[in-house]
Computed example of a mutant assay.
Amino acid sequence: MRNKRGHLQKLAGLLDIPQDIVMDLPRITMLGNKQLLVENHRGIIQYTPSLVRIKLNQGELVVTGADMVLGNLQVEQILLEGIVEVIRYDT
């Protein structure tokens, strides 16, 4: 599996294609500690105002904070708004 990933990374570099597209990786963008945008997710596992667990293709993203709300939920992206304190990527 690692060899396949290595080949995909090289191919993405040669063709100048973003690795997140070729390797089905999530794209995670933060605006300070107030907003977190997660693209290429597989759904929400758990949601509370202080804990959000998001399913990814390989593992899950665990976000802890305060007063977090789902600002935008779409098939391809999730926007969390509130105070983001900790982000952990579990594989």
Rank of each mutant, 00 (worst) to 15 (best):
P49N: 06
D67G: 11
R27T: 12
L11P: 01
V62N: 03
H7W: 09
L61Y: 04
Q46S: 12
L70W: 06
L80R: 04
R2Q: 10
N33V: 02
V84Q: 01
L37G: 04
D90I: 14
G13D: 12
L70H: 03
D20S: 13
S50C: 12
N33M: 04
H7Y: 11
K55Y: 02
L37V: 15
N57T: 09
L80S: 07
P18L: 06
R88Q: 13
V75Y: 02
R27E: 10
A12H: 01
D67V: 06
H41P: 08
Q19G: 03
D90L: 10
M1E: 07
G71W: 04
T91P: 08
G65N: 01
L37F: 11
G82K: 03
N57L: 14
H7A: 15
V38K: 07
R27N: 06
Q9F: 00
K55S: 13
K10C: 00
R88H: 11
E76W: 01
Q46R: 15
L36A: 13
T91A: 12
L11V: 01
Q9P: 00
Q58Y: 12
Q58S: 13
L25Y: 13
V63F: 05
V69F: 10
M30G: 11
R27W: 04
I78F: 04
M68R: 04
K34D: 07
Q74I: 01
I44C: 09
A66I: 00
D16K: 15
Q46E: 13
D20G: 04
L70T: 08
V69G: 08
T64L: 03
I78C: 10
T64M: 08
L56F: 06
H7P: 00
Y47N: 02
G43M: 03
V86M: 10
N72F: 06
L56A: 02
V22K: 00
E60D: 02
E76F: 02
I87H: 07
V63R: 00
E85D: 11
R2S: 06
R27F: 07
I21F: 14
L15E: 03
K34R: 15
L79Y: 02
G65A: 02
R5M: 10
D24T: 05
G59C: 02
I17T: 09
H7V: 15
V69A: 11
L31P: 00
V63A: 05
L25R: 11
L15M: 14
L61R: 09
A12S: 14
V52H: 04
Q77D: 07
G32H: 02
K34S: 15
Q9T: 05
L31M: 11
N40H: 12
G71M: 05
I54N: 00
Q9W: 00
G6F: 07
N40F: 05
N3C: 04
N72I: 06
I54A: 01
G71V: 07
D20N: 12
I21Q: 11
L56I: 04
I28V: 15
E85A: 14
D67P: 01
G65L: 00
K10S: 02
R42M: 09
D90M: 09
M68G: 03
G6V: 05
L11Y: 05
M68I: 12
Y47P: 06
G59S: 00
I83T: 10
T48L: 08
Q77I: 03
P49R: 05
I83G: 08
V69W: 05
M30V: 14
R88A: 14
E76P: 05
G6R: 09
V22A: 02
V75T: 13
R27Y: 08
Y47F: 15
L31A: 10
Q9R: 07
